[in-house]
Amino acid sequence: MTGLYVAAATLFGLAIGSFLNVVIWRVPRGESVAHPPSACPRCGHAIRARDNVPVLSWLLLRGKCRDCGNPISVRYPLVEAGTGVLFAATAWFVGPHWVLPAMLYLAAISVALALIDIDTHRLPNAIVLPAYPVSLVLLALGSWNPGGVAHWDAIVRALVGAVALLLVYGIAFVVYPSGMGFGDVKLAGVLGLYLGWWGWGALFVGWFAAFLLGGIYAVALMIAGRAGRKSGIPFGPWMLLGAAAGIVAGQPLWDWYVGVL
């Protein structure tokens, strides 16, 4: 049953990944993600249904448009495959629990936000702001846990976590505005919801890991001569990666640390 459960999540992730490719391309340009249908960015021909199967269509077309023959970026199948793998890993980690929809939603917006931030150094309000009510409702469903034991303390922690990270990132933005964008502050509240839901240890480790990983990356770029002290580096992907580390390993690390003390 576990194998079927993860396999279903993988297929769902592949389909969502195909949609995320549209989101990543259109949202930063202020375009609708619903209309018009997907088309080749070079010749403008609408993509046929048989050519819109995640990963498989790109392989069968050998990475080229059926109509104009121009190459299609390998990023499209990588986003689809990566989202499928991420959904599978999320389903395996969470298991058959009512919080799974919330975690799959976080996984989906993480892919979109990370790539958009890398491309444009922006975290669009069109994705970040709706994530607050959607995440809160889905996490409340996870706390309710119909048919099982309710965990209302988790949703209280989630709210505290959101406020805590908003304050921490907000203060950092005010003190050093050139080092952090306001989009990072808004994203911090969303991630605080999830980290708080999973525990105080997840919240602390997720916050710390973002700055640790982002700092290591920035130092590595400077050592390699690819960035200077004033270079702009997208921080959103590191916030998301730090949150993932907090959710997966934060609470065990925190419990171990407290035990050592």
Rank of each mutant, 00 (worst) to 15 (best):
residue 219 V to F: 01
residue 165 L to M: 07
residue 201 G to W: 08
residue 42 R to L: 13
residue 46 A to T: 15
residue 211 F to E: 13
residue 247 I to C: 00
residue 182 F to A: 03
residue 201 G to N: 08
residue 167 L to S: 04
residue 151 H to A: 11
residue 36 P to E: 03
residue 233 I to D: 09
residue 199 G to C: 08
residue 234 P to L: 10
residue 218 A to Q: 01
residue 153 D to K: 01
residue 205 V to I: 15
residue 53 V to Q: 04
residue 14 L to F: 03
residue 188 A to R: 01
residue 232 G to V: 03
residue 252 P to V: 04
residue 180 M to W: 08
residue 90 T to L: 04
residue 26 R to I: 10
residue 65 C to P: 06
residue 3 G to P: 00
residue 35 H to L: 07
residue 168 V to H: 00
residue 102 A to T: 12
residue 243 A to L: 01
residue 36 P to R: 11
residue 31 E to V: 08
residue 258 V to F: 02
residue 60 L to R: 07
residue 112 A to V: 02
residue 199 G to I: 08
residue 249 A to G: 14
residue 214 G to H: 09
residue 77 P to C: 13
residue 104 L to N: 07
residue 34 A to Q: 07
residue 212 L to M: 15
residue 7 A to T: 07
residue 113 L to E: 06
residue 194 Y to C: 07
residue 117 D to Y: 04
residue 255 D to V: 05
residue 130 P to R: 05
residue 58 W to V: 10
residue 151 H to D: 14
residue 165 L to A: 05
residue 248 V to S: 02
residue 229 R to D: 00
residue 72 I to G: 01
residue 47 I to H: 02
residue 192 G to K: 02
residue 100 L to I: 09
residue 18 S to T: 01
residue 24 I to T: 09
residue 228 G to F: 05
residue 238 W to Q: 00
residue 243 A to R: 07
residue 199 G to E: 09
residue 34 A to S: 13
residue 88 A to N: 01
residue 81 A to G: 14
residue 103 M to H: 11
residue 190 V to W: 01
residue 79 V to D: 05
residue 41 P to Y: 14
residue 234 P to N: 08
residue 2 T to N: 05
residue 91 A to T: 09
residue 5 Y to A: 09
residue 180 M to K: 10
residue 153 D to T: 09
residue 229 R to C: 00
